[in-house]
């Protein structure tokens, strides 16, 4: 029954799942290799949570097959449950227990659990050890939920929007935990809305829209061919966008307006390809105006832009 090490940790083949007349997942297929950190991206309602919950054994597929560690999550549940860790999108914690009590309870379910005390330290909840769960902040609850997913030393971890509601510090802690999991060879399947999270953490991502696979690959692969014909930079807010346009020679056809815009305060978009000459002209302008450049992107689109483009195309 147990799968070979070269077999995928997770395999989804032709998964279909309906809720009444709605097709939540519509023929989705992908594999996740052992030790891989895999991101499932998509707009709300794309079928991400349904897919994850099918892998966790909560839902039976209407069609297609899913396997986790070579096992059927529903029919082989008793064999699979000790080997997976689950973080639900929300809830799952007894409001009346304290974090340490909760982790000790979850540790009792597994044969070789981590130490509840040290895991509480790892997720930064030592100070909240004696606060009941109902009085924890949203981010603290998320971290406790993450700790509960990891307490049984799982081989495969499912994290459904793990950093939603976390402050930047907790987010960084969580990212580090995911990297540590990868270093230990643990397979991680996570869903997220944060493209920077996917870019930072995931070996590969699948972009899902309308229950179907829209793109699959590493973040670098997905962005490699997405050539941008825009320059984006960040600097002090309130720069003279018309002057920038003239400095970059964008006034030649007489329409400088709208070629350079301040998209958000201090963030500028130049609607022209980022040729070496234009970048040099921009640098000269900033030198002459004594403006410090905070960030610059040209040539390649970010994963976020690729995501928005793909999901917008699918929506049409």
């Amino acid at each position: 029954m147990s799968a070979a090490a070269s077999d995928p940790a997770i395999s989804v083949a032709g998964l279909v799942k309906h809720y009444g007349p709605t097709k939540a997942v519509d023929g989705l297929s992908f594999d996740v290799a052992r030790g891989e950190v895999f991101g499932l991206l998509g707009p709300n309602g794309a079928g991400k949570t349904t897919t994850v919950e099918t892998l966790e054994g909560y839902r039976d597929p209407d069609a297609g097959t899913v396997r986790v560690l070579g096992l059927d999550p529903v029919r082989n549940a008793p064999a699979l449950r000790p080997r997976i860790g689950v973080m639900l999108q929300e809830g799952g914690l007894y409001p009346g227990l304290k974090p340490l009590e909760l982790l000790r309870l979850f540790a009792a379910y597994y044969d070789d659990a981590e130490s509840p005390e040290s895991l509480l330290d790892t997720v930064g909840l030592r100070d909240a050890a004696n606060t009941s769960v109902r009085r924890l902040s949203g981010g603290q609850k998320q971290r406790l939920s993450l700790a509960a997913a990891l307490i049984g030393r799982p081989e495969v971890v499912f994290l459904d929007e793990p950093t939603a509601g976390m402050d930047p510090h907790a987010r960084a802690t969580t990212w580090q935990l995911v990297r540590d999991l990868r270093d230990r060879g643990v397979t991680v399947l996570l869903t997220t809305h944060a493209m920077d999270e996917a870019e930072q953490l995931c070996d590969r991502v699948a972009i899902v829209t309308g229950g179907k696979l829209a793109a699959l690959g590493s973040p670098a692969e997905l962005t490699r061919h997405a050539v941008s014909d825009e320059i984006w930079f960040a600097a002090a807010p309130g720069l003279d966008v018309l002057a920038i346009g003239r400095a970059l020679g964008l006034g030649g056809d007489g329409v400088v307006e709208d070629r350079v815009v301040e998209d958000r305060p201090g963030e500028y978009v130049i609607r022209a390809p980022g040729t070496p000459e234009r970048i040099a002209d921009l640098a000269c302008f900033l030198r002459d105006e004594n403006v410090t450049l905070a960030a610059l992107q040209a040539g390649r689109r970010s994963l976020e832009e690729v995501f928005l483009q793909i999901t917008a195309e699918e929506a049409r």
């Binding site: 054994g57 449950r81 809830g91 799952g92 914690l93 409001p95 379910y109």
Partner: peptide, 18 residues
């Protein structure tokens, strides 16, 4: 009823505690 509301019953369903 409240354990069901807070997703506790659901969460326990994916642990080895059957």
């Amino acid at each position: 009823g409240f354990e069901r509301r807070y997703g506790v019953l659901k969460r326990l369903g994916s642990t080895p505690l059957s």
